[in-house]
């Protein structure tokens, strides 16, 4: 059904202009669509986070603007749009203004690889997962530049901590992804989902897949800079960390990108471990929007686990952060990859 709409638009455009112009216009339309998804996802997730945080802390959360407070974040975003963009006098202005766009662009680029359903999958290449991890690691540069260009000690410390944290934990995320790739045998995201038609990978790979999932969740929390790993913007020590000097929309870009990154991390977890947009009961293709529905449900579930982490655990100290990564997660991961390879070799997977 969605595919029909797409082909209709395609034919309409072909009738109006040449093939190349239509192709470029379609790319622009898709990009605009993804920008829309970016904004809506960001606002929805901020609302979800605040609501969930409320219930965890015996509060109600935002519940006044619109049904269940759904429009609260839209109101907040409008407020941020209307605010003045300020900067410090001694900031490196070019880099300072450039920095947020690194973060959003990388978040948008990774968003293109997410399979929302069988039909809605903008960019499906044969090295999908590899591309995803490499692109999302560029986002660090945005945070790093923000910390450096602000010319503020808190921002700088925040940026430096990002460097330490991201470089360390990207290793763990990558390793746990590699573990699952060993099991799946492909890097293409659509194929990984396809493989799971007769069972999710977390069941197929049992013990090593379970360990990989746990490591992925821990490292994913660190990757998206969330508590307990939010040393980058530790409020009690650094003001607001790397975005201390940002205001208005520039700040909102970081804020939205953070939540979109959370969505991306959760989507990768869903694709790798829980069968992407596949229904858990095997009736996937009969209903048109079922893929979107199941994907949404699973992603919200994983996001909820991340929120659960955030509102339960206290923040790490920087040395504890590095101890956890280099002394615990990384050795576990390496052993886990060998274990997974052995299991695949001996045919012990389901």
């Amino acid at each position: 059904m969605i595919l029909n709409i797409f082909t209709d638009i395609h034919e309409l455009l072909l009738g109006l202009m040449s093939e190349e112009a239509a192709h470029i216009l379609e790319l622009v339309l898709i990009a605009a669509g993804y920008l829309g998804i970016f904004a809506i996802l960001g606002l929805l997730l901020v609302w979800l986070e605040r609501r969930v945080a409320g219930f965890f802390q015996l509060r109600l959360g935002p519940n006044r603007v619109g049904p269940m407070g759904l429009f609260q974040t839209i109101a907040d975003a409008l407020k941020l749009v209307s605010k003045e963009l300020t900067g410090t006098v001694k900031a490196d202005m070019q880099l300072y203004k450039l920095a947020p766009y690194f973060v959003i662009t990388t978040a948008l680029m990774s968003l293109a690889l997410i399979p929302f359903s069988y039909e809605i999958h903008a960019f499906d290449i044969n090295i999908g997962l590899f591309f995803l991890t490499s692109v999302s690691s560029i986002g660090v540069i945005g945070i790093f530049l923000a910390g450096w260009a602000s010319n503020n000690k808190y921002s700088l410390i925040g940026g430096m901590r990002t460097g330490i944290q991201m470089i360390s934990y990207e290793l763990s995320v990558g390793m746990s992804i590699v573990t699952m790739v060993v099991l799946a045998g492909t890097l293409q995201i659509s194929e990984i989902v396809e493989i799971q038609k007769d069972g999710w990978l977390i069941f197929k790979g049992h013990i090593p897949a379970l360990i990989a999932f746990m490591v992925f969740m821990i490292a994913g929390t660190a990757e998206s800079n969330r508590t307990p790993f939010d040393l980058v913007e530790a409020e009690s020590e650094l003001g607001a960390g790397f975005h201390t000097e940002y205001s208005g929309m520039n700040f909102a870009y970081y804020f939205l990108a953070e939540f979109v990154n959370l969505f991306i991390i959760s989507s990768v977890a869903v694709v790798l471990f829980f069968g992407g947009w596949l229904s858990p009961f095997g009736i996937t293709d009969s209903i048109p929007f079922a893929g979107l529905f199941w994907f949404g449900i699973k992603v919200v579930g994983v996001i909820f686990i991340f929120m659960w982490f955030r509102w339960t655990f206290p923040r790490f100290r920087i040395d504890q952060l590095l101890t956890l990564e280099w002394k615990y997660l990384l050795p576990i991961n390496i052993v886990n990859i060998v274990l997974m390879a052995l299991m695949v070799w001996l045919g012990l997977t389901f």
Binding site: V52, F55, F56, Q57, L58, R59, L60, W308, F309, W311, T312, F313
Partner: peptide, 23 residues
């Protein structure tokens, strides 16, 4: 820790029993 906070969350999500907020 997660069990304790999870209990808070689900109890308040469904019943609002322990919510302190006065509207």
């Amino acid at each position: 820790g997660m069990r304790i906070t999870g209990k808070y969350f689900f109890v308040n999500l469904f019943t609002r029993r322990d919510v302190i907020t006065q509207q």
